[in-house]
Amino acid sequence: MRVAFTTSGDSLDAALDARFGRAPRFLVCDTDSGAVEVIDNQKGMDAAQGAGIQAAQTVARAGVQAVVTGHCGPKAFRVLSEAGVAVYTTDAATVAEALERFRSGGLTEARSADVDGHWV
């Protein structure tokens, strides 16, 4: 399963970015093979509006099945659910920690956005 984590770094020990739409990068981990891939979110960061929507399209196109981040706004959530991408929120400090919680089943899938639009 391919899972995207929001981060400002480019490796597993990097910090987990609490923002979804304006996170600088996504670290995509393949939970089966352990392979890691970095995806840029420059377009989301630069967007004046709709950053969350842009970011949601970026990860959906990367073919992930889940996103793990700090918070997710309503527009991004709508796009992700439409694309069949599950959203998990966590307060884990690093990507590795978030991955560990995800693997051990310690995260529950978000049923709705947990912040309002402008937070993303």
Binding site: A47, I53, V79, E82
Partner: peptide, 23 residues
Amino acid sequence: CGRFCAYHAIVSLATKPLVFPEL
């Protein structure tokens, strides 16, 4: 439609499009 819109106000990911009128 989604590829055209520069404002992310209409989004289609191989799905029927979502519209965000406020954008």
